[in-house]
């Protein structure tokens, strides 16, 4: 007896439902405990505060503090991408959920998409909290000439960033402690390279090679564009190259993520490592 194949519409619906459900789990789970929400807004303020005070100490204008606050908010997304996207299959495997995803009739990409959507919405709430709290506590100036452009760049940055997260998740699908260590390794170095805590527009002192390396990370491009629009008061014309670069990042990273996921899944099935725990 052979069953008829699912129609493309059925498949699409199933995958959309799975993506929505995974997003819902992330939203529900992360916001259920207020302690977590408060900590995720409050903790970055400690670091941001230290840098804002340092900027004041060395006599830079208050706009530098605004740049740091935007950087701190964007770091929330990067941390989310690292710990809740890149190493997510590791957690799912440890809790026995990965097996369930693998025996379900959905593309793993839709599960990742759900994680990405949930993560970006969740982190946006936290990032907004960080920005508002930062403005309130440190009284830094913003100059928002074109809010729509800020919104556009922000969304494009998130899309590119979470697509990168999907790629990392796929690459690390079979790994355990290595995934964890790599995620750790990509924290401070990326904070540095992306210029999250210092406005790179002020920083010709940063060697070109480092700036080039930093530009490979979508966050760096997005950060620079948002700072130009939200702090310097520049218009969308100033950030066209950024917009194109972010779109290009997404277009390159998405198929790569898909390929990596298929490859790692079939490798895992071949070697029997997909559901192997305690690695």
């Amino acid at each position: 007896m052979m069953l008829p194949k699912a129609t493309p519409r059925e498949e699409l619906l199933t995958n959309l439902r799975a993506a929505y459900a995974r997003m819902w789990v992330r939203l529900r789970g992360s916001n259920r405990e207020v302690t977590g929400l408060v900590a995720e807004i409050g903790l970055p303020i400690l670091t941001i505060g230290a840098y804002v005070i340092l900027y004041r100490a060395i006599g830079l204008p208050p706009t530098a503090g605004a740049a740091v606050i935007i950087g701190g908010a964007m770091i929330a997304f990067w941390t989310n991408v690292l710990w809740n996207m890149s190493s997510q299959w590791f957690w799912e495997r440890e809790s026995g959920n990965l097996e369930m995803y693998l025996v379900a009739p959905v593309s793993r990409m839709s599960v990742l998409l759900g994680m990405a959507m949930g993560g970006s919405v969740n982190t946006s709430i936290r990032a907004l909290g960080i920005v508002l709290l930062g403005i309130f506590v440190f009284q830094v100036p913003f100059q928002l000439a074109d809010p729509l452009s800020v919104g556009l760049v922000f969304v494009l940055t998130l899309v590119a960033l979470y697509t990168m997260g999907m790629l990392f998740a796929s690459i690390f699908m079979l790994y355990g402690r290595e995934a964890w260590n790599t995620a750790s390794l990509l924290q401070e170095p990326v904070y540095f390279l992306s210029g999250a805590y210092f406005p790179r527009i002020y920083a010709p002192v940063v060697p070109f090679a480092l700036q080039a390396a930093g530009s490979l990370i979508p966050m760096t491009i997005g950060l620079d564009a948002i700072r130009r629009l939200a702090i310097n008061g520049e218009g969308v014309a100033a950030v066209w190259p950024h917009i194109l670069a972010l779109i290009a990042c997404t277009l390159i990273l998405f198929p790569l993520a898909r390929r990596a996921l298929n490859y790692m899944e079939s490798l895992g099935k071949k070697e029997g490592r997909l559901t192997l725990r305690w690695q």
């Binding site: 340092l54 904070y191 210092f198 406005p199």
Partner: peptide
Amino acid sequence: IVAFIVII
């Protein structure tokens, strides 16, 4: 990060 802030 902090060193470059000072250098800036």
